[in-house]
Computed example of a mutant assay.
Amino acid sequence: MFIHMKELQYRAKPERPDPVFARKLQEVLGGQFGEMSVMMQYLFQGFNCRAEQKYRDMLLDIGTEEIGHVEMLCTMIAQLLDGAPADEVDKAAQDPLIAAALGGMNPQHAIVSGLGATPTDSNGFPWNSRYIVSSGHLLADFRANLNAETQGLLQVVRLYEQTTDAGVRDMLSFMISRDILHQNQWLAAIEELEAIDGPVAPASFPRERTVREATRQFINFSVGEESRQGPWASGPLPDGTGNFEYVENPQARGGAPELKPAAMHQHSMPGTGPYVANEGRGLK
């Protein structure tokens, strides 16, 4: 069960209303890498977890915290929208300078949600469950979690730089701090899992069934050879199965495809004659 506390995890009070910034905050609430996404991602991974109990418990701990972050953002957005009802917006817009500032406001905040947050991104596109990853494979999922926290942190840092409101910055500073912590948690969990099964996920596919040279060749498919200077082109493979090999001039190995002609078909259609597949020339 879940228990809701009325107190927020951290302060979420702006110095002054700012409907334009409220729209921007919608991105880190309901965007692809927003708090709604990490909340649902971690919770579903936890609900579905069949691994050791400590992993399930960690996922549910962090996922439940993200529910609180969603509430913090909704609270902040609602307060940023305070004092900006539709009639006041219309009056203010008579001043050209104010109209230019209000031009960035999300009209749905005034029309649809009654000056409240919505489960959408900054352009009003609704959040959807395809943003989340819950595969049942811990290493694959934890890497997806690390990516989600990385992209989310990047967006929150950019938002921090786009406001001078001390109250908004205070909340964003806390969210940045938690994103840093969560990245470190996923890195630690990934390191632990890699020590058990190695860095390649999944590790269960038999290597004898792979094309061995294809598992180690870095192929130069573009003009230029600068890419050969990186550790991904030479030296030991991270999974310990050999060394990278740089292939300067890749050669085609599959031959030119030759597809058989389509089978002959006849289809009677009302009011027309039969349609017959004509080899190499479509239908006639």
Rank of each mutant, 00 (worst) to 15 (best):
L159K: 14
L146P: 07
L59V: 05
M1S: 13
A256D: 11
G114E: 13
L146R: 15
D82L: 01
S134W: 11
N278F: 03
Q26S: 14
G235L: 02
R23M: 10
N48T: 00
W127D: 03
I62K: 10
V200L: 09
T150I: 13
P231A: 00
I180L: 12
Q251V: 12
F142V: 02
A92H: 10
V156L: 09
L153S: 13
D87I: 14
D18S: 02
G124Q: 08
R50E: 10
I111Y: 08
E7C: 00
A277W: 15
S204W: 03
P236F: 13
G271T: 08
E161F: 05
A144V: 01
F33N: 15
L259S: 05
R56I: 12
E225W: 04
M40T: 10
L138M: 02
S177M: 07
V133G: 09
P96N: 06
R281F: 11
P206C: 01
R253F: 03
Q45S: 03
L80K: 09
F2W: 10
T118W: 15
D82I: 07
P236A: 14
V89S: 00
A92W: 07
G46A: 10
P257Q: 08
D197N: 09
G116F: 01
G83L: 07
T210Q: 06
I3A: 14
V156I: 15
S234N: 11
R23D: 00
Q94A: 03
E149K: 12
P96S: 00
V28Y: 03
A110G: 07
Y42K: 08
L97E: 15
I67G: 03
T120W: 13
D57E: 00
L283D: 02
G31L: 06
P250K: 13
A140F: 15
V133N: 10
L154D: 15
R16M: 02
F218G: 10
G273E: 12
Y42D: 12
E27Y: 07
A233G: 08
Q9V: 15
K91M: 11
W232C: 01
G282C: 01
D179V: 01
V28R: 07
L181Q: 12
A203D: 14
D121H: 11
N184L: 00
D87P: 04
